[in-house]
Amino acid sequence: MIECIINQNARDAGAAIFPAMNWPILSLCNEYNVGILQIPCPEIRFLGPARKRQPGQSLRDALDTDAGRDCCRKISMDIVNRIEDYTDQGYRILAILGGNPKSPGCAIHCENSKLSPNSGVLMRELQDELRNRRIEIPFKGIRDADPELLARDIAWVREIFSI
């Protein structure tokens, strides 16, 4: 799951929904004894905690550059290496939990089980790396900016965890 689900302080200033962590999702992990592999924040990794970029440049535009995509590709390779390590040890990876629909790095928008171009830069790179290694894992955005959508996402996570 993306870093900001575990730590809302990783979000851009003013974007946090919860005071510290997305407790509804984390409590499901606790309830179903599901471990967490944290996906680092691509914005912080690439731009630093202050998300420094050119004046007038959006976070998405900063990430969607050769250097930004390269950073996201490196994160993706690290995450997929860890996923392979876990599966080699007999663990099952249930899902990739991404972010809100407008997240520049971690948004998830699916079309026929493939991420659309509207998805975040990191999530597209992560799906490419998984597919290059012939690994299929469902992606789900945790849309905590909207209580109704978050309730649907929590229900989806609960269903995946109970399988």
Results as ranks from 00 to 15, higher is better:
M1K: 01
M1H: 07
I2V: 14
E3P: 01
E3Y: 03
I6R: 13
N7H: 06
A10F: 02
A10R: 07
R11M: 10
D12Q: 10
A13M: 06
G14Y: 12
G14P: 00
A15E: 12
A15I: 02
A16S: 15
I17S: 12
M21T: 14
N22V: 08
L26N: 11
L26I: 13
N30W: 00
N30F: 04
E31F: 04
E31P: 02
Y32R: 12
V34T: 14
L37E: 12
L37Q: 09
I39Q: 03
I39E: 00
E43C: 11
E43L: 11
I44D: 09
R45E: 14
L47C: 08
G48D: 07
G48P: 03
A50P: 01
R51M: 15
K52L: 11
R53V: 06
Q54P: 00
Q57K: 08
Q57F: 05
Q57L: 10
S58Y: 03
S58H: 03
L59W: 01
R60F: 03
D61W: 06
A62V: 01
D64A: 11
D64P: 02
T65I: 14
D66A: 14
R69K: 15
D70A: 15
D70S: 13
C71S: 13
C72L: 09
C72H: 00
C72P: 04
R73H: 13
M77T: 09
V80K: 01
R82Y: 05
R82K: 13
R82D: 12
E84L: 15
E84I: 15
D85R: 13
Y86P: 00
D88C: 10
A95I: 05
I96A: 06
I96D: 01
I96M: 08
L97H: 05
L97S: 04
N100A: 05
P101S: 12
P101K: 15
P101M: 12
K102D: 14
K102C: 09
S103I: 02
G105M: 05
C106K: 04
C106L: 03
C110F: 03
S113F: 11
K114W: 10
L115W: 00
V121M: 03
L122V: 12
R124A: 07
R124I: 13
R124V: 01
E125M: 14
Q127C: 08
D128Q: 11
D128C: 10
D128A: 11
D128W: 06
L130H: 10
L130P: 07
N132Q: 12
N132Y: 11
N132K: 14
N132M: 10
I135A: 08
F139C: 13
F139I: 13
G141P: 07
I142K: 00
R143A: 06
R143V: 02
A145N: 15
A145Y: 04
P147Q: 08
E148S: 09
E148F: 07
L149I: 05
L150E: 15
A151S: 14
R152T: 02
R152L: 12
I154R: 04
W156Y: 15
W156A: 04
V157D: 04
V157N: 03
E159V: 01
E159W: 09
I160S: 10
S162N: 09
S162T: 09
I163H: 12
